[in-house]
């Protein structure tokens, strides 16, 4: 296995008596999209700030590209914080240059790349405008450009979609995907679970300062399978339920004329074949699939369970 691009081992952080992170470890594979999930106040932003070396952990170690994290690594990381903004009185171009140079780009290179991005987003005419003259969506595009301008290997987005309208959110999502396809590694934290299934390869779930779950999205979903199946058939619901006998638990049923849909759970050692054998005589099976829990369900279940 290749070394992960980023790794945090046994990170703890306290603010006074409040423990923000308790022995949290994560590992982010190169080129993957990593979701950092958790309810409000779980410690996601604390962890992200530690990854960005904004704050130092009380204990634990960080590794970037196999080496202990050091300040020079910020040039290889791009960060879009949850609380983000720009200097309102400063001109867009000048501000982009300033922020790019703080990230370690030299002036000419920064200018060259900015020109490319400004063309791509069709915002060349904004260069000499003050930020306060831009709309919110425009300002967010500028922030995005500044985050990715130095072509970082690791991109960190904290709640990237919060405060975006659906159109801009889609633009940003597409950009994140295209950066990922170009080989960037991405960590992002979000509440929007549907985007997690769509974008993330792996996740870590943090609740009450502790990591309670992590792994590849598919593995996690498999892990939380409840042996539940959904079947659609044509036939009589009553004879169907009678045929089920005691080997299967009927969870839900819908009928629409002779068109029926049910959710059931296998009991004991029963297999799908047993089920088919039992019901085939009484109905015509239209479709059958296993019900995989959504990330949203997994999230809610794990967060609500007493840790």
């Amino acid at each position: 296995m290749t070394t992960p691009l980023f790794e945090a081992r046994n990170i703890s952080k306290s603010y006074g008596n409040y423990r923000a992170l308790d022995d949290v470890s994560i590992s982010v594979e190169r080129g993957s999209v990593f979701g950092l999930l958790g309810p409000n106040g779980a410690g996601k932003t604390s962890l992200i700030r530690i990854i960005n070396q904004i704050t130092a952990p009380d204990s634990g170690t960080l590794f970037f590209d196999g080496k202990p994290m050091e300040p020079a690594h910020v040039a290889r990381i791009g960060y879009l914080p949850e609380e983000r903004g720009l200097y309102k009185k400063m001109e867009v171009g000048e501000q982009c240059l300033y922020l790019a140079r703080l990230r370690g780009l030299d002036k000419h290179e920064a200018k060259r790349r900015l020109r490319i991005w400004f063309e791509k987003f069709e915002m060349q005419s904004w260069w000499n405008k003050k930020v306060e003259e831009l709309s919110k969506g425009m300002a967010q595009k500028v922030q995005f450009v500044v985050t990715v301008l130095h072509e970082p290997e690791l991109l960190i987005f904290d709640e990237p979609f919060s405060g975006f309208d659906p159109v801009n959110a889609a633009i940003i999502r597409d950009e994140i995907l295209s950066l990922s396809q170009k080989g960037a590694t991405i960590i992002f934290s979000t509440h929007r679970m549907e985007t997690v299934e769509e974008l993330c390869d792996s996740i870590a779930l943090i609740n009450k300062s502790k990591k309670i779950l992590d792994g590849k999205v598919r593995d996690i979903q498999n892990q939380f399978r409840t042996n539940t199946f959904e079947m659609e058939f044509r036939g009589n619901m009553l004879s169907f339920t009678t045929a089920l006998w005691t080997g299967f638990e009927l969870l839900e049923r819908f009928t629409d004329g002779d068109h029926c849909r049910v959710r059931l759970k296998m009991l004991g050692n029963n297999t799908v074949n047993n089920l088919f054998n039992a019901v085939m005589p009484v109905c015509e099976i239209k479709s059958f699939r296993e019900v995989i829990p959504t990330m949203n369900e997994i999230f809610i279940r794990n967060v609500q369970e007493p840790a």
Partner: peptide, 18 residues
């Protein structure tokens, strides 16, 4: 205060020390 209310401070301190 301006940097704080503009919410730019976190962007900057991810590049430099506070």
């Amino acid at each position: 205060i301006e940097e704080k209310t503009n919410r730019i401070v976190e962007v900057i301190i991810s590049s430099v020390k506070p």
